[in-house]
Amino acid sequence: MPPHAQRNRLIEDNLPLVGYLAAETHARATHVPREELAGVGALALVTAASAYDPSLGVPFGAYARRRILGAFADEMRAMDWASRGIRRRIKETVAVREALTAGLGRTATIAEIATAMGMPEQEVSEALSDASRTVTTLDDPSAAGLISDIPLPEESALLAERRHVLECAVLALPERMRQIVQAVYIDERPVKEIAEELGVSHSAVSQQRAEAVRLLRDGLEHYFADGPAPEPVSRVSVAVREAFFARMVEIGGERIARAFRRRSALTA
């Protein structure tokens, strides 16, 4: 296959990854438009495909994921309003609040925090208000990748729900696809090594990985889509896709079952 065609194939097969990462990041940073993230991520995917060197043994999916998340982080840094001084004040105030809350067994009041820090109550109130909208970097280990230091309850709930549904979808994949997704995206093993272990070609692993990503996207959109489910993007048979949905319900329980029944009723 000519280099240009290989590059285009990488881009086409991994576009669902851009959509998934953009949706996941938007769920944690609702102030950043999902469409803007998708545009930045698509550009990062194109540049990743152009720069990718398969001889290094790094799976393209893992390589592209890092590039896309890095592009998201750069975009959000450019949008961030907080100076280092403000960030330091926020971090100190939140740390004192958490320490007092743990010691008191209840949420510390602004007056208690102000007394402990020797600060006016107004400054403490402003710092805590700023904390609710401060953007951190995606790779900040202290925040475990969360965009907000203090996520709103509805944002935390949505993030937890997305993770739960994705975990169920990964576990529901056909066995070979599940093994490949685990090896590529979680264990970050070289595709060549995975192919040798499974006794198949490098291209066969890549094709299965791409189809697994498409099937995961079908599962997520079948659960989260507003209105009838979108047209599937996976190329598997209807029987395989329906069996995948059935396993998601079996693994995820009544919550996923209700969403799928609602989607079926809207489609009927």
Rank of each mutant, 00 (worst) to 15 (best):
A157C: 00
R162A: 03
A144G: 00
E154K: 05
H164C: 00
R163N: 10
P153I: 05
A169T: 09
E154I: 03
E175Q: 08
L158A: 11
L171N: 04
E154R: 09
D149V: 14
L171A: 14
L158M: 13
R162T: 02
A172M: 02
A160H: 05
L146F: 14
R162E: 07
G145E: 08
R176P: 00
G145K: 09
S156T: 13
L146Y: 13
A160I: 03
P151G: 06
E154T: 01
A144D: 04
L159H: 05
L152E: 14
S148V: 00
A160N: 03
L158D: 15
R162W: 12
V170S: 07
L152N: 06
V165I: 13
L173R: 02
L159W: 07
L158F: 11
E154Y: 05
V165M: 04
V165A: 04
S148T: 08
H164Q: 05
A169E: 03
D149S: 12
E167C: 07
H164N: 01
V170E: 14
E167W: 07
L166N: 11
V165F: 09
A169K: 11
L173T: 00
L159G: 06
E161G: 00
L159N: 06
E175D: 14
R176S: 09
E175H: 03
D149N: 07
L173I: 06
A172D: 01
L159D: 02
L158C: 03
L158P: 00
V165K: 00
L166P: 00
L166I: 02
H164K: 01
R163V: 11
E161H: 09
A157N: 02
E161Y: 07
D149T: 10
E154W: 08
P174A: 01
V170M: 13
L158I: 13
C168V: 06
L152H: 15
I150H: 08
L146V: 12
L146H: 15
L173E: 05
G145D: 09
L159S: 03
R176F: 04
V165Q: 04
A172H: 01
L158H: 03
